[in-house]
Structures are given as C-alpha cells and as structure tokens.
Design a protein around this nucleic acid. Structure first.
Lengths: 137, 137
DNA sequence: ATAAATGCAAAACCTTTGCACGCCT
DNA sequence: AGGCGTGCAAAGGTTTTGCATTTAT
C-alpha cells in the first residue's frame, strides 16, 4: 500500500485517497478491469468517489505510464498496471483477459522496425480463443 | 465492381447499391477508414445514404467475414477488407494505419496455443511508432 | 496559500435501435 | 407478395468537460 503512494509521488502525481485506491486495486488484480468495474468494486470502501474521478485518475496514471490501456474489442477500455509490453489472451467464452508472459515475441519489435523502417515504441498484441477452463465445459 | 457484388451474394447477403459502395470502397483503399470516414467519402456519390446504414452494413460484412474491425486505440473502430490475419502499424504522428505483410509471425498462434492451452482462433497485433515519412519531418 | 483533485451534472461522442417506407428476389 | 434493407430520429452507453468545492503540498 505504502509503495503505491511512493510510485505516485515519484511520478509527480498528487497523492490522494482515490488515486491510491484505484492504483492499488490495479496493482493487485489480474482481472484487467474497466473504469466501470473499478468504480463499482471501490464503492464499498470509497462510496463518495465518482466515476468521473475514476476516469480522470486513469488518464493521469496512463500519462505517467503507471498503467496501460487495453482495447480488446469491447465497447470500453480495460486497464493493466503491468506496463511492461506483453500480449493478452482473451477468452471468447468467459471474456476473461489473461496476461501472457512469454519470450516468443523477443526481438519482434526490432525485426518489424527493420522490415518497415518505422521507429517503434510499443505494441499491443491480443490473441482470441477459448481458455482451458471453458474448453472443459 | 462486379466481383464485389458476387462476393456479397456468395455470402448470402442481399446486394444493394449501398452495400456495394461501402464494400467496394473498403476493397480499394489502404486507409483503414472508420464508419464516419466511409460515410463522408460516399456522400458525393450516395448523398441519401445514412450513417446508420453504414454501421448496419459494416456489421453485416463483419459477420460475413468480408471485413475485419480494427481497434487501434482511437475512440472509433476502423475497417479493413483484408481479412487475412496480419499486423498493423500505427503512426503516432500522422495517425495513418498501415498493413504489415510479413512472415515474422509465422507459427506464432500455434506456439502461443501450445504454451497456454488456449484454443486460438485469431489475433490482433498493433505496432505503434513513427512512419518513415514522418521521421523525415 | 496555491494549485490541483474531487464530485456532480451536463455534454459530447460513437454506435445501436425502432419503425415506417421502399426495394430486391 | 414477402422479407429484408434503408433512412430518419431517438436512445443507449462510454467517456469527457465545466465548475464549485475540497484537499494536498
């Protein structure tokens, strides 16, 4: 909890209870929640926090590169506090989003940059399918 | 033009001037336009066509697997008539979206499936950077 | 003390929907 | 003739914005 506040301060962000709550939640989940989901799950502990604050905070965290925004193809964005570039797996049955930690994509950005003459900064990689759990059903 | 109508009919879609115009445009551009962009660029030739028809048509084409929907991180979707799975390059300076035809990602889906026990159907891969043109400026 | 963050409401924006009319088969 | 597509307007959902108040530094 403490370190969450430190991270915010280190990025020059004002440390508020709302920001701590949102960032702390994102750091301790594997769920890749949307703004709405974050808002609802913090209702119990922070009943006065507004949805607008969630959006504003996510924007601040995004600009500070403390979270990344995901576009899995739903109508809203999802957020991930693991900012290191990594692919995501989306289960089309249960709609869960999983992190994929792999070295399969090692050097990929560099190779693509060489192929295309682009100067590349980042990539977003999404795989769509059925997760092991849902395959059993 | 003719073949566009054939493709629609082959998928069991009713062939209308609006559908031909939209699909024809998507087949003959490299721009990855949004619904709004499609609508505007067809205003001259099809002034009575509504934006709702563009959306409904894109939905039909998507379901028929004649176009794919892209999520590059903007607030609206873009569309691509090249439905074969391929990565996209987004220039953060001029906002153009480029197709990347490469074999760098050969076997990638299969390897990820093996690593994760997912049953995979598709993937979306986006690289972000600065295109060669914009680097010169 | 100052500047910034919050909360509320309203607005903006993209997309979808309902329905009457017209067109394709 | 029947069903589907179109066009219009309205609604829906997500995200942004303006502004007065509160809070962090």
């Amino acid at each position: 909890m403490k370190e969450v506040a430190e991270l915010l301060k280190a990025k020059g962000l004002k440390v508020t209870p709302q920001r701590i709550a949102i960032f702390h939640m994102l750091c301790n989940t594997v769920e890749h929640p949307s703004a709405e989901t974050i808002y609802k799950s913090l209702q119990e502990t922070h009943p006065t926090m507004s949805l607008a604050t969630v959006y504003k905070t996510l924007d601040a965290l995004k600009k500070a590169e403390l979270v990344q925004e995901l576009n899995v193809g739903e109508d809203s964005f999802r957020y991930d506090a693991k900012v290191h570039s990594h692919p995501h797996l989306i289960c089309l049955s249960c709609n869960h989003v999983y992190d994929l930690h792999t070295d399969l994509l090692q050097d990929l950005r560099e190779k693509v940059a060489q192929d295309t003459d682009f100067e590349l900064f980042s990539e977003k990689i999404y795989f769509y399918g059925i997760c092991p759990e849902c395959q059993k059903k």
